[in-house]
Amino acid sequence: MSRCIRKATAALCGLLAGAIAANAGAASAPLCAKPVYLTFDTGHMGVAPLVADVLKRHDVKATFFLANERTQTGGTSLDDHWAPWWRARVADGDVFGSHTYDHVHWLKDLPGDRFEMRPDFGPHAGKREILTAQQYCDELQRSAARFREMTGQAMLPLFRAPGGRTSPALLKAAQSCGYRHVGWASAGFLGDELPSDKYPNARLLARALADIKPGDILIAHLGIWSRQEPWAPAVLEPLITGLQAKGYCFATMDRHPAYRAWIAAHRP
């Protein structure tokens, strides 16, 4: 091969590599100058179809954190009844993380890399139990394994602890098995867990539209048992359109600048 051809080949390879890198960067970059990150934790799933309809209608992609919670259909949020719904979310371009399988709350750290926990669901629901760091990792992975079984797709290497309750030791344990925690912004707490009499939908919507800032991670649920005035879709749709009117766009957590490098390094 002549020297000229070698130089031309090297230049072409460089251009191709640059184009590939640029496309990868563009794929993971936020969609606009004012992104927010809408996330949902599982719940009783009663509003799940309505949530999906609103997201699809406004071309919004969201991030879902999955636990196997009791549902209004008499089953659980990761049972075969809901598998088609999760497959449809994959097809719509949403992304997913673990919420632990039995919605396990951290209570306190114990010596020897152990944790006192309380699951809300499963065979030990409501009982305090002690988990090792590895057992907590196994709990995170159970949701990921069930999700792959339902959809054939992998979750992101992200999780959200139920109630957002963590400790440095718990976060270290999760990171040791490839999971990074996702919390939420103060203004991003959308209030669907709050009592309806004190926090009606109109108040929650007004507060969110006034306080949310670019880059905020927002949190809601696919149904809260205790709320009498359903938050979705009554608040969800005007929240989306209201933020869009203010120049915001909605991005998934794989586009978040604080998580992109972690995801790239730990994606299954």
Rank of each mutant, 00 (worst) to 15 (best):
A202C: 03
D41L: 01
L31I: 01
P84F: 05
Y199G: 01
V90Y: 04
N201Q: 08
M117C: 15
G163E: 05
A67R: 02
A208Y: 08
R227Y: 11
C137A: 13
P214N: 14
D211G: 00
A161F: 12
H124Q: 15
A26Y: 13
N23P: 00
G25C: 12
S186L: 15
D138V: 00
H105F: 15
M253Q: 11
A27V: 07
G223T: 09
G152H: 09
R207A: 11
A208K: 11
F64M: 10
Y37L: 02
A258M: 01
L194M: 14
T63E: 10
G25P: 00
M45T: 05
Y136M: 15
E116D: 12
I219D: 04
D254I: 07
E229Y: 01
G43N: 02
K56M: 07
L194D: 10
T151L: 05
F96C: 08
A220W: 00
T252Y: 06
Y101L: 12
R260T: 15
D102A: 13
I263Y: 07
L204D: 06
Y179G: 05
S98F: 09
F65I: 05
A187F: 08
A185W: 05
R87E: 11
A169V: 05
A8S: 12
G122C: 03
Q134G: 12
A251L: 01
G247L: 10
A234M: 02
D53P: 01
D138R: 00
F250N: 04
P84S: 03
D41K: 02
E229T: 12
A220I: 03
R165Q: 13
G112H: 03
W231P: 03
K246N: 09
R87N: 07
P268A: 04
A187T: 03
G126P: 09
G75T: 11
G183Q: 14
M150E: 02
L66N: 06
F96P: 10
H221E: 07
H256Q: 08
T100Q: 04
Q135P: 07
S143L: 10
P84R: 13
R57T: 08
I5W: 14
R142Y: 11
D211I: 00
K34M: 13
E229K: 04
A145Y: 02
T166A: 09
G43F: 04
Q72N: 14
G163D: 04
L12T: 14
A264S: 15
D113H: 07
P238R: 05
S98V: 08
V54H: 02
A232I: 04
H103Y: 10
R128D: 14
L110V: 06
H44K: 01
F96K: 09
R148K: 15
I219M: 13
P35T: 06
P157K: 08
H81F: 15
A24D: 12
T241R: 13
G43L: 06
L171F: 03
R165S: 13
Q153L: 01
A169W: 04
V47E: 14
T71N: 01
D192Y: 08
H181M: 02
A220P: 01
A144L: 06
R3W: 12
G163H: 09
P200F: 08
Y199F: 15
C4N: 12
Y37D: 03
R260P: 03
P200C: 14
R118C: 08
A161M: 14
P111R: 01
T63M: 08
A133D: 05
P84T: 05
L171Y: 02
R146M: 10
